[in-house]
Write a protein that binds this DNA or RNA. Structure first.
Lengths: 104, 104
DNA sequence: GAATCACATAAGTCCATGCTTATTTGTTTC
DNA sequence: GAAACAAATAAGCATGGACTTATGTGATTC
């Protein structure tokens, strides 16, 4: 069940920080470490967890490995959340605004 | 940071099962245990975690305590997810369908 | 008010997980 | 092909978290 992997991956604050950083633009593992106090192996392990959860994908570029957000993981969360849409009727308007925003 | 509590709460499959069950309709802790192989204290502890995360709220009714989904927690996830909406342009159509659905 | 019931809390155990240091793998460069 | 560099993997450790049994608390019933 990948849903479980996703929530477990996001349960760690360091991994959410990494994910947020990647959301601002793809980069390699070394660049990701800048500004985050974390060892190289720890970063590598976190990225492996995020990748396995489908939240992030990698692409080797020479001796660097470029990481970027994988929309698949986000889509899965959105699908999970949609199951409970009955519980936020008051937010429908906000969602509509969001949609309009998406359309530009 | 309650965001952290939410993801940690949802990282446990048993708690997600409990949450899903509550989403189908509020009920007390004993009723919740039916169909889930879990001890009474374990259920109580899980509910405390969900409650602390803002995913569930309680209301004492006599010697029973009724639990139900708290929309606040879901709204927080939605807000978190919205930050990354740039990453699922292909899902806009799906969202529109969802919205239409919400309007009946 | 004693017994019973629904639930919460306490305390201890065990396993998962996030970290560390050390090493390995893959790639480039000289 | 040896050195240098980016990243992954291995192995060990320490903490967190999900469970257990035992007990406490609040409410109802007789």
């Amino acid at each position: 069940m990948i849903e479980n992997e996703i929530f477990k991956a996001l349960a760690d604050p360091t991994r959410r920080t990494i994910f947020e950083k990647l959301a601002a633009g793809g980069m390699n593992a070394s660049a990701l470490r800048e500004g985050i106090d974390i060892s190289q192996p720890a970063m590598s392990q976190h990225l492996a967890v995020l990748r396995s959860a489908g939240l992030v994908r990698e692409e080797r570029q020479g001796r660097f490995v470029n990481y970027e957000v994988d929309p698949e993981g986000l889509a899965l969360i959105a699908r999970w959340l949609a199951k409970y849409r009955a519980y936020w009727p008051a937010r429908i308007e906000a969602l509509k605004v969001l949609l309009k925003d998406m359309d530009q």
